[in-house]
Nucleic acid binder design. Structure first.
Lengths: 213, 213
DNA sequence: GCCTTTCGCTACAGGTCGTAGCGTAACTCC
DNA sequence: GGAGTTACGCTACGACCTGTAGCGAAAGGC
């Protein structure tokens, strides 16, 4: 009833078990691997994690949010070392992303939660914050490096730069997801080389003709 | 027991009601609009269509296949008029595809069935045959026209041409889907212009430097 | 020690799935 | 026109999952 401005956990009472948290998320990933998204149930996850079903519902409102959190941590692996050229940077990050999509947990979960998010705005925001933004940072970093190297012209209009970043991100992430999940073909070296060549060529052509428009 | 080589329906007995077929598919789309993928149930669809639940199960093994068939007919609208240039053709087909993705039926259903298909090979094949191939034909037609116009060099190696078609398809379809469903930003004129400029530039650059490799 | 919150457990109503069984309707072949 | 075959609507059913409620016990802060 008093001032509760401090969101730093609830100061009093029994604290939530962090072990339970990690056990639940781990159990969720295991269930995704074995059962897939559609056959995964809250009761099953609770059993695997060794906790009561009510404990899950105290932390996550539904399967959707639980799975998002369980998969999101996998995206921490994504890194962006400087490989010396824009094309090399693109190829490296695409292969990393593809490896993530090859894992059965993400393969079955990612599209499913995105599908759910088309009718659930808070869920979409959760996905954006914990998964999408994490990928987008890599695009930003790669573009900035390419500009410093002189491979891309320095952006004058910040709006146009943002729009280009958005476009590149949608093209790369979309193409990889579509290749891996819709076409169901391998995202391997040759394909990635073609994709990055197309992108680098397209960016170069755009810069040569009209710039950032 | 006798020879049943003729697959032209089953010759004897009461034929299946084609009215029921169309009513069910229409009811499925209506349910997708109102309820979305996850809350759509077989019983609900049966009620809307005015048929018994058992009638649904006699035709479709599960919700997945039913929804694929219900959404697939929408992709018949996709057409590919010759607009005179590769870039114009790309922009037109992308805007058409985007309009399809804006519809609530497809928005909620498409990603969901693809997610299911990652663990269901027959379902993936059904999606490929009734939805994906229908889109892919447009890419083929656009590429051939561009070659006839001289915008793209004639492909010598058929394997390389196929690979390029696949790449373009994954890039276009993937980018549009990602933009519309993941980024949740509008696929409007300016964005489409940027995307097609990137593609045309990339294809031109690839042709100029190394060709189809 | 008192208060607060979490935990595991059980039980429960509500809803969905997918099937079985029945009598009836529609159509083909003889 | 009758026999055979298949589809239809209807009801009922067991199995499963959801999400919540209520309980006593446990684990922290003050």
């Amino acid at each position: 009833m008093c001032s509760r401005t401090n969101p730093r956990s609830s100061r009093t009472g029994r604290p939530r078990s962090t072990e339970a948290d990690t056990a639940i998320l781990e159990a969720t990933r295991a269930a995704l691997v074995e059962l897939g998204w559609s056959k995964l149930t809250m009761g099953d996850v609770a059993g695997r994690a060794g906790v009561a079903k009510t404990t899950l519902y105290r932390r996550w409102p539904s399967k959707n949010e639980l799975v998002v959190d369980a998969v999101a941590v996998l995206f921490d692996e994504l890194e962006m070392p400087d490989l010396g050229s824009l094309q090399a940077d693109i190829e490296h990050v695409v292969l990393q992303f593809a490896a993530l999509l090859e894992r059965p947990e993400t393969k079955t979960a990612l599209m499913a939660v995105v599908a759910e998010s088309t009718r659930d705005e808070p869920l979409r925001e959760r996905i954006r914050a914990s998964i999408v933004d994490r990928q987008k940072r890599l695009v930003l970093a790669g573009r900035e490096r390419a500009q410093q190297r002189g491979e891309l012209p320095p952006g004058r209009d910040p709006m146009a730069v943002d729009a280009t970043d958005d476009l590149i991100f949608d093209v790369i992430a979309g193409a990889v997801v579509h290749r891996a999940l819709v076409s169901a073909e391998p995202v391997d070296g040759p394909w990635v080389a073609r994709l990055s060549a197309l992108l680098v060529g397209g960016l170069g052509a755009a810069a040569a003709t009209g710039g950032d428009r």
